[in-house]
Design a protein around this nucleic acid. Structure first.
Length: 465
DNA sequence: TGAAATGTTGGGGCG
DNA sequence: ACGCCCCAACATTTC
């Protein structure tokens, strides 16, 4: 065919892009287009920090396209209408796109398919939904057997990982919208957008005998040490292909200098498999987006004051508050901190996990419907293969384990900066004299705990039980 | 990818 | 030397 549309959704990259590859193989001219859909831009599950990252990524992509003789076309409107219009303007014979599985994406894509021919290739998952199933044809709902089956799939069945376009011909004279600017509202941009930054970080994380991946398992929980890969925003928007990430993980595992290092790296691959697991779960059970996977209901409590305290990082538990302010400021939080704040909201405060899920989606740069929903339902104990109801994190002992010197806490809670180590994890126990020395009066500069841990724990056991 | 309560063991102080 | 108690350290059970 003469021309084809490459419809970009969450695959903001040129390398290892199966949809782009297919379009280039089938058509002489390719039109890279991103559609700003008002249904997404105005959604209560979208926030400024993630949009800013998306738009910065699109600008980067436009620049990369420029280097191969093309450019990005941006349109604003409902996807099905804008793609219709673009196909008519350009005479494009088909639309090429990577799959996208959230309930909204599937409705949108069905509407597009009703009007235009769409050829799907590639997936945001490493192995797409449907490819990891039980022998009776049903989807897995527990992680361990899912992971075993996933690991039995031949890595060689993954299509070429090395594709990178040399030249893209794109028709002239197609109108393109400007991308909105978000300089004011988003605070400090913690992640540099774009495929280049993503590949740089992946390399740094996985390459060489001293690579962080070889200490991943033992350091990922240390909130004060940046022990995680920090690749999630790139995976979210496909600035990094999940398959490229997996392929680098496999290589690192093979190249590990010893068994300990190999196990450490393996743990990171296991996390990528968790990501696939939740993508598959949302695909097979789209109702989990709105409802608990488990039928038994928890009697959630309405508590707007407590919800606000949690959102603002004013619960009186330093690790919880540091993490929540980290999120508001940077749009990101390490995995361990996410588990701690989620457990606190659902179990200590007995607030419905959906309130936490929405807050995360509004603030996380990497906010992804499948991973975020899966994580929240896991924490709340309502999901597939969920944390058992009696597993209640003690926010103080979690802080002692994972931020032993309080460095993370002091960084995000400046009012606790001068609190001595003995009290950094339980400032409410500080004698008054030390409070004034530390210039931190509890109840004034920093709140008393909004719930007593032991009481909250008992209450959660009773309500969940 | 918990934490608390309860149970067991063994060293050391002491009469 | 011996029995008793205390309690830290570790193990097991329970939520």
């Amino acid at each position: 065919m003469k021309a084809a549309i490459w419809w970009i959704r969450r695959d903001l990259r040129l390398t290892d892009n199966q949809a782009l590859k297919a379009a280039l193989e089938q058509a002489d001219q390719v039109i890279p287009v991103f559609v700003l859909d008002p249904r997404l831009l105005g959604s209560p599950y979208v926030g400024a920090k993630r949009l800013a990252f998306l738009f910065a990524g699109l600008r980067q992509l436009d620049a990369s396209l420029g280097e191969v003789g093309s450019r990005l076309v941006v349109r604003r409107g409902k996807a099905e209408l804008e793609l219709d219009r673009l196909a008519q303007e350009s005479g494009a014979g088909a639309i090429f796109a990577e799959a996208d599985y959230s309930p909204f994406a599937r409705r949108r894509d069905a509407a597009v398919e009703a009007r235009q021919e769409v050829r799907w290739s590639g997936s945001p998952a490493i192995f797409p939904p449907g490819s990891v199933m039980k022998s009776n044809g049903e989807p897995y709902v527990t992680f361990s057997p899912f992971m075993r089956a996933w690991k039995r799939l031949p890595a060689a069945s993954l299509p070429s990982q090395r594709f990178s376009p040399a030249e893209i011909h794109t028709p002239e004279n197609l109108e393109s919208e400007n991308l909105p600017e978000f300089s004011q509202e988003t605070g400090e941009q913690a992640f540099k957008a774009g495929e280049g930054a993503a590949l740089e970080r992946l390399e740094e994380f996985t390459q060489g005998e001293q690579a962080p991946i070889y200490r991943y398992a033992s350091r990922r929980n240390r909130v004060d040490l940046s022990g995680t890969s920090e690749l999630s925003p790139y995976l979210r928007f496909g600035m990094l292909s999940a398959r490229t990430a997996a392929s680098m993980a496999w290589k690192a595992i093979q190249a590990a200098p010893n068994k300990i290092a190999r196990d450490e790296a393996q743990t990171w691959l296991d996390e990528l498999i968790w990501r696939d697991f939740f993508i598959h779960i949302l695909y097979h059970f789209p109702q989990v987006r709105r409802h608990s996977f488990r039928k038994q209901g928890v009697a959630w409590q309405k508590n707007p004051q407590a919800l606000t305290a949690w959102q603002q990082g004013q619960t009186g538990y330093p690790l919880v508050d540091a993490a929540m302010r980290h999120l508001s400021h940077s749009g990101w939080m390490p995995s361990r901190a996410r588990m701690v704040v989620a457990s606190f909201l659902c179990k200590h405060l007995l607030i419905d996990w959906r309130a936490g899920e929405r807050w995360f989606m509004q603030h996380l740069i990497d906010g992804d419907p499948a991973a975020n929903n899966g994580g929240w339902q896991w924490s709340a104990g309502t999901g597939t293969d969920a944390a058992p109801y009696f597993r209640i994190f003690n926010p103080t002992s979690q802080a002692e384990k994972h931020d032993p010197q309080g460095g993370y806490i002091r960084h995000w809670l400046p009012e606790l900066a001068r609190v001595p180590n003995d009290y950094i994890h339980k400032p409410w126990e500080m004698p008054e004299k030390i409070q004034s020395q530390a210039k931190c009066l509890i109840g004034e500069d920093y709140p008393f705990p909004i719930v007593d841990h032991a009481e909250a724990r008992e209450r959660a056991l009773e309500v969940y039980g």
